[in-house]
């Protein structure tokens, strides 16, 4: 494989895009999770307030943290397995030509 033929601009763009997506999603997950932990540590009463007869806000919030982890991984897979992989294939095709 001759790396000289690689489209440097496109490759740099790919790497930049990959990490901007990866790092922003990582940041979002860290904010959600540590936001939850800090809320528990400093303002527990918010999560203890009732939203039904007995149900507390903490239960749907905890569930939302779990679902956000699933949603974020799902979004990433969709992006990576379509947009990202398509760009990868374009770059490889050009290298072969």
């Amino acid at each position: 494989m001759h790396h000289g033929k690689i489209d440097q601009e496109a490759f740099k763009g790919l790497v930049r895009k990959k990490w901007s997506v990866s790092l922003s999603m990582t940041a979002l997950m860290l904010i959600i999770y540590f936001g939850f932990i800090l809320l528990l540590a400093f303002n527990r009463d918010v999560l203890a307030q009732k939203i039904g007869e007995h149900m507390t806000l903490g239960i749907p919030v905890g569930l939302a943290v779990i679902l956000s982890a699933c949603a974020l991984t799902g979004l990433y897979v969709r992006w990576a397995n379509t947009t990202y992989d398509r760009t990868v294939n374009d770059i490889i095709d050009k290298m072969k030509r």
């Binding site: 932990i37 528990l40 527990r44 999560l47 203890a48 009732k50 039904g52 903490g58």
Partner: peptide
């Protein structure tokens, strides 16, 4: 699920549906 949680609260008090002492020291939790 609300019925289950209500039954738990009726039996052991509202505290079982509230965050307790697990995260008391924020640095430790972090």
């Amino acid at each position: 699920p609300a019925d289950l949680f209500s039954a738990a609260a009726a039996k052991y008090g509202q505290k079982v549906l509230e965050p307790g002492g697990l995260v008391s020291n924020p640095w430790d939790a972090l």
